[in-house]
Every structure is written in structure tokens, then in C-alpha cells.
Design a protein around this nucleic acid. Structure first.
Lengths: 233, 233
DNA sequence: TAGATTGTTAATCGATTAACAATC
DNA sequence: TAGATTGTTAATCGATTAACAATC
């Protein structure tokens, strides 16, 4: 349906990149149609979820065939804004910030870097690929002049909040926080956390729970195991 | 309550690192008690959510005082397994993989790297910090020998699925996928996506929606704006 | 004591899944 | 035509928020 300026539910937005990359592969393989059941199997969703998700987009599936892969790629790209260019700055020129600056995928997906900033006098002026590292004091000037929308926080946690404040003050519209800490921004600035350390902790936690469940399962002599197996199958 | 091997709801697990880093700061500032309302204000949750979340942990709040910050840090660390060491390998020695290998935060939080792998003959053998880059063929041997639990996928999307298969075959227990694509793993292997490009797209999407909403709001002469403002305040 | 704060139950909200008529 | 598949409504599930008795 895709009514203008109606924000899609967050879980849907988070699934769109998965559909996009996967269906793009299908088109590359010359597969012209894909059904909700196939997508569900391939991506680990249910077919209901797939149909609900895609019903938000401006395309129609076809009975007995499914969705046209080429069209699907096009409308998801359009919905995600994958065809428009976004302007960003990176604050923090440590390993992570530099990796972001040099990572080809950013530019390839329309995210153009307009500056790499740091506060360490030792490295200011140093070249990182095409960028020369600039002082954080220059942030505001660059953001204004280049109409930068997005700021990446790639500094150590103790400095993250101050960097966020500087970005907000510079007039940034959205922040991606890569630092392992909570940062606060006023509610007219969008803030999304992408903290791989938190993801790693979540992963380690999930692994531990699996192990414990397995152990418990092995130790406990389940009286009704037959029934349970039926339920699981 | 913290009943053994009972997995906490995912949203709770994802909030725990936020509580942890924030309350850790409070302890460092010598603040001994914090209430659910204070935590809610500081982290952007509701006090109900805070109390619900913390009720899963093995600690008791105190009427009129709240939660003891030191104890809170301890039980969250324990629940997250932040005090145990985790063994990982990194596959892909591009900018991102190398940044992960060199990032001090990993080791500081108990994630120990046991190898950095790549398939490019040009860079195999090269030193990256203390690691020398090894061929992906050596993956299985290292994972078995060092009892590695976690694998990081830091290769370009076209190679990601094959790397995932190799990690699974090597007997890894969990995978953190940093590549911008969907990868599949058998259900006894935990897989978590940490794709900053997807996060950036989500951010850009949210920014666009805000803009559009603002424009719509400015253009449409809302007849009931008075009432609406009351609701918002 | 009075008032603030917890822990927990109940109500609300939103997302996922199931079901099925409409369609090709 | 018969059967597979969509789009959508209804049912289920789970998470968040509200409310309030118990507590210090």
C-alpha cells in the first residue's frame, strides 16, 4: 500500500535488508518469481510474516506464481532509500573508525563519508585512504557546509556522550553509535545503536543457555519423552 | 528470581548491557543507590520496564532507596557472563576483520581472539598486531584445538555463506555475522547479525520518515492542533 | 508516621501466526 | 477445472505499561 510518510513497523524495516540481499541474489541467478513460502524457507521466517511484510510495499504478488523478483528488489530498494545518497561523518579514527572510512561497502550502498575526525593531536592531519584526519572542533563547520545528515560514533565509551553532544550541536539528523555504552540524544535526533560488543555478549549468552538446556535435558530422565518428541516433530 | 537455565526474553538481554555500562558509571561516581525511575529517565525506558527487567535478576531492590549500584553491576555481569572468557576466531582480514582483531575492547570484555583467517594468498602470513593471517583451511584445526566457541564473519557478502558453512563444519557454537547479507546456519548453532550497513539503512529510513512527517505537519493546517498538543504534553 | 519505592498482577499494545476467501 | 498462492482478517502470542498492595 505504501501510503506516503507512514513509517513501517520496526521489525519490518529490519527484515527488509534481508529480503533485499537475498532476492537480489535470486535475480542474479535468473530466477524471475519467488513465493512467500520459498522466501520463508530461505530466510527463516514464516510465509505469513513474508506476506504481511510485503503487503506494506507497493507491489502485488501474483496467484500461483508469487512475487516478481526484479520488481521486489526495486520496491525494497526504493522503500529503504537505497537509491538515494546519504552524507555522513565518522568521529573517532581508531581501528574501527578507520575501518568504516575505508570499507568499500559504505560508498557502494550510497553512504558517502565527508570527514574522519579525532581529537588526538598525534594523528590529526594523518591520511587514512583519501581522508585526512581532522580535529573534532572542525565538525560543526563540515556538517553545516556539506549538509551531513549522519554521524558515526567510533570513539571509546568515555568520549561517546561528548561526541554525541557535539554532533547534535552541529545539526546532525541521525547518529549511529558503535561505542559500547548508552548515549543520549534529544528526541528530534534519531539514534541507533550498532554495538558489536553487546551483540557478542548476547551471542555468548545464547550459547550458554543452549548448553545449559542441553545438559539439563541429558541429565533429567524425562518420563514423557515420547510425547514431547511428537510435539516437536 | 534467576531460575537456572531459563533464558531471559530477548528484549531484556538487549537492555542488560545498557544497564551495565550506565550503572557502572554510577558506581564509579560513588553513587550507591539508584531507583527504577532514575534509571528509566537516564536510559530512556519506563520505570515499569526497569522493574520488570531487574526482577529477572537475583537481587532485591529496597523500598525508598532503590537498587544498590554495586550489586546491580555484579549481578548483570554475572547474568551476561561478562566475567567468563570467550574464545573466538575472525574470518576475513579486510579492514573490518583487522579492526576487530586489533580492537582493545574485545579482550577487555573477555573475548579472546584465537586466529585471524583469510583466503587471499597475498596476505596470508602477514602480521596484524600479534596475529599472523592464516588460511581458512586451517580453521577447523584451530577451532578444535583451541576449543573456540564463536566465529566472526567479516568477509564480503559473496563469501559469507561459505565461511558460515566452514565455521559450522569446524564445530563452532555461535556466529556473529558482520556481512551485509543473510547467512544460514543449522538451528543448533546460534547466529546473530551485527550488520552496520543494515543499521545505517534503518537510520536513514527513520530520518526520512521524520522529515516527511515534519513536512506533512507543516503543510497540513491541522484543525485540531490544540487538542493534539494537549495529548502530546 | 507519611511518603517513596519495590515486586507483581492485570491491562494494553503491537507483532506474529493461522485461516480462508479471492484469484489466476 | 483443480490446485496453488496471494491479501487480509482474526486469533494468538509476547512485551510493555499501568496500577497498586506490601514494604521500609
Amino acid at each position: 500500500m505504501n501510503k506516503t510518510s507512514k513509517m513501517l513497523p520496526k521489525p519490518v524495516i529490519q527484515r527488509l535488508p534481508k529480503y533485499l540481499t537475498h532476492v537480489h541474489e535470486l535475480t542474479s541467478s535468473g530466477i524471475p518469481w519467488v513465493s512467500s513460502h520459498q522466501l520463508a524457507d530461505q530466510l527463516g521466517f514464516t510465509s505469513s510474516t513474508v506476506r504481511q511484510d510485503l503487503s506494506h510495499l507497493s507491489l502485488k504478488g501474483v496467484s500461483k506464481r508469487g512475487y516478481h523478483t526484479g520488481q521486489l528488489v526495486a520496491v525494497i530498494r526504493s522503500e529503504l532509500g537505497a537509491d538515494t545518497r546519504h552524507r555522513l561523518v565518522i568521529v573517532g579514527a581508531g581501528y574501527l573508525g578507520c575501518a568504516m572510512a575505508l570499507h568499500g561497502g559504505l560508498a557502494a550502498h550510497g553512504f558517502e563519508t565527508f570527514g574522519l575526525f579525532d581529537n588526538d593531536p598525534e594523528i590529526i592531519g594523518t591520511k587514512v585512504g583519501d581522508f585526512s584526519i581532522r580535529p573534532v572542533d572542525a565538525l560543526k563547520h563540515v556538517v553545516k557546509k556539506e549538509h551531513v545528515e549522519i554521524g558515526l560514533i567510533a570513539v571509546p565509551p568515555p568520549a561517546a556522550q561528548e561526541v554525541a553532544d557535539r554532533l547534535v550541536e552541529a545539526g546532525i539528523k541521525g547518529i549511529l553509535n558503535l561505542a559500547y555504552c548508552h548515549v543520549h540524544a534529544p528526541k528530534d535526533v534519531v539514534l541507533i545503536d550498532a554495538r558489536f560488543l553487546a551483540s557478542l555478549q548476547e551471542l555468548a549468552y545464547a550459547i550458554r543457555c543452549r548448553e545449559e538446556a542441553k545438559t539439563a535435558w541429558a541429565q533429567q530422565p524425562e518420563p514423557f519423552s515420547q510425547e514431547k518428541q511428537q510435539h516437536e516433530s
